[in-house]
Simulated scan of single mutants.
Amino acid sequence: MWEMVTVALAALAAGFVDAVVGGGGLILVPALFSTFPNAAAATLFGTNKAAAIWGTAWATHQYAQRVRMPWGALLPAACAAGLGSLAGAWTVTLVSTAGLRRALPLVLLAVLIYTLLKKDLGREHAPLYEGRREAFVASIIGLVIGFYDGFFGPGTGSFFVFLFVRLMGYDFLHASASAKLLNMSTNAAAIVLFGLKGHVWWHLALVMAVANVLGSVVGARMALARGSGFVRAMFVVVVGALIVKTGADALLH
C-alpha cells in the first residue's frame, strides 16, 4: 500500500510538470526505480508510459479547448512522431546509447543558454509557416524527436517545446500544447511495444494514471491562466533539472 501511495504521489507531481512543459519523467521514473529496486527496468519504463499517457491526453484536451491547435499540421506530425518512436525503439536493440548519454547534457545546456540569451524567445505567437509547409516542418520535428524518444527518451517534451518555439515561431504556451499531442503519440507507440512484451504493471499503472490526470488538470489550468511567461519559466527550470540529472547519469555510467 505504501509503495502504491508513493508512486501515486509521484505521478500526481509528474502530471503537473508534464502538463505545463513536459519533463514529468524526472519525477516519476526515479520514484519507480527507488520504490521497486528489484524490478526489470523495461517493466518500470512501460508502467511509467502507461500511466503518463493519460495525463498527457487530458492536458491535450484542456489545451485544445482554450488554445488554437493547428490540427492540419499536428495530426501528421503526431503520426510521424509515433513512427519515429517505433523506429527508435527498434534501433536501440541494435546500437548502444552510451554516446548519446554523454552528449545529452551538453545539448540541453546549449538549449538552456540559447533560451536565456534570447529574452523574447517564445513570448509571442507568430507562426512562421502555414498549410502544407507547417505540416511538413512539424512532421520533421515529430519524426526526429519521436525517434529520440524511442531510442533514449529523457527531455523529449522539452525538445518538442523548444523546436516548436525556435523553428515554427510558436510561443511557449502554443508550443507546449502542441508538444502534448506529439508526446502522447510517442508514448502510445512505446506502450504497444512494452505491452506486447509484458512489461507493464497494469494494476499499478491504473492507480498512477488517475493521480497523473489530477496533476495534469492543475498544471494545464495554471499554464493557461498564467500564459507563455509562466511556461517559459517552467521550461528553464525543467531543462536545468534535466542537465543535472543527465549529467549525473553520464558520469555514473
Rank of each mutant, 00 (worst) to 15 (best):
A211Q: 10
M184Y: 11
L204G: 06
A57M: 15
L86Y: 12
V21L: 12
A57E: 05
V137D: 03
A11G: 05
V20G: 02
M222P: 00
A50P: 03
E130M: 10
Y63C: 10
F152T: 02
L112Q: 08
V217D: 04
I145P: 02
K245D: 14
L74R: 07
I140P: 01
L106R: 08
A126L: 15
A59G: 12
V236W: 00
P127H: 14
G146W: 06
G157I: 13
F230P: 09
G88A: 13
F164R: 00
I141N: 01
G195R: 12
A73K: 10
K180C: 07
L9I: 15
W202G: 05
V210S: 11
M234A: 12
L104I: 06
G24D: 11
L128A: 13
T115H: 00
G88I: 14
K245S: 14
E124K: 13
G227W: 10
Y63E: 08
V192F: 13
A80R: 02
F159K: 03
G22F: 01
R66L: 08
R232E: 07
R101V: 05
M234F: 14
G46E: 08
S176Y: 04
F36T: 00
F160K: 02
D18E: 14
V244L: 15
T186F: 04
L44Q: 09
A250V: 09
A87I: 03
L12M: 03
I145K: 02
L106T: 14
G72W: 09
L26M: 13
V95C: 12
I145S: 05
L251H: 07
M69L: 13
G153D: 10
L106M: 14
Q62Y: 05
V238L: 10
L204K: 07
V192E: 03
L106G: 12
L94I: 09
A59C: 10
A189T: 03
V95K: 11
S158R: 05
A57Y: 12
S139F: 10
A51L: 06
G131I: 00
L28F: 12
A8P: 02
T47F: 06
L106Q: 08
G122W: 01
V20Y: 01
L214C: 11
L128R: 15
A40Q: 15
A78V: 01
W90Q: 06
W58D: 02
